[in-house]
């Protein structure tokens, strides 16, 4: 059996070139995060992170290269990674068995945060598939249900995802599962007071601004519902 790989970013259009100063500024933003010194000490290229990394087995992805590029402050390579590689990380943190104490997965986290904060096109693209997930979590405060995962936005799951999605309801009936609460309208109900507190937290902590950066349409939708709920209560 041959293994085919998909990349949500590398297969399609590549990113736009930007001036050196822009790359440098984005790099400095990652580097200035207070977690950065604990995530990157130095790298002697032992590759233990790569050999433990599930993404490295299927994608052109290397946590070692990420650690090296950042340690060398190679802003061109940094920008390539920011645009492409970081979305291929599963954030499983198998790489933290680094003998130097580095956390390449954590570096990816920091880079993703910067990408989202700036509403970079790649971040928007990579997060598209999650819009219903975000919608559900932010409005209801609870987890996703299987029918929310849409095949159109997960090309990296391979061609089977479409079939899975189409047949999910039947298959889940065939395979005994602990709960039948597997569709959106049957998900947990959260009481109104908790919801209002949750909405207040999203606004106060700046989360709504982050959502606006990556998905303005989703932001408008959420704000409308949340504000209505908050106003009704006051």
């Amino acid at each position: 059996m041959s293994v085919m790989t998909w990349s949500p970013t590398k297969g399609g259009e590549r990113y736009r070139e930007v001036p050196e100063e822009r790359k440098r500024a984005l790099f400095e933003e990652v580097k200035s995060d207070p977690r950065y010194p604990d995530f990157l000490y130095g790298c002697y290229e032992c590759g233990i992170c790569v050999s433990a990394c599930p993404s490295a087995r299927f994608y052109d992805f290397s946590p070692r290269v990420i650690a090296q590029a950042l340690a060398r402050e190679d802003v061109d390579r940094f920008y390539e990674i920011l645009m492409e590689d970081i979305w291929n990380c599963a954030q499983c943190f198998s790489c933290v068995r680094c003998p130097r104490g580095n956390n390449p997965g954590g570096l990816v986290t920091l880079m993703r945060e910067v990408a989202v904060r700036h509403g970079l096109e790649q971040a928007q693209q990579a997060l598209q598939g999650y819009s219903r997930v975000i919608y559900k979590i932010m409005l209801k405060g609870n987890q996703v249900s299987p029918d929310m995962l849409q095949p159109d936005f997960f090309p990296d799951w391979g061609p089977w995802v479409r079939e899975f999605s189409r047949n999910m309801a039947v298959w889940r009936k065939a395979i005994p599962v602990d709960t039948l609460r597997n569709i959106t309208d049957a998900a947990w109900r959260t009481d109104d007071k908790t919801l209002r507190e949750l909405y207040t937290i999203w606004f106060e902590t700046g989360n709504m601004e982050v959502i606006r950066e990556v998905d303005e349409g989703l932001y408008e939708l959420l704000v409308e519902i949340m504000e209505e709920e908050l106003e009704a209560a006051s």
């Binding site: 290229e45 032992c46 590759g47 233990i48 790569v50 050999s51 490295a56 087995r57 290397s62 070692r64």
Partner: peptide, 10 residues
């Protein structure tokens, strides 16, 4: 299981 780092592959 390791990485052959000079060849850049698992």
């Amino acid at each position: 299981r390791g990485e052959d780092t000079t060849m850049g592959r698992p």
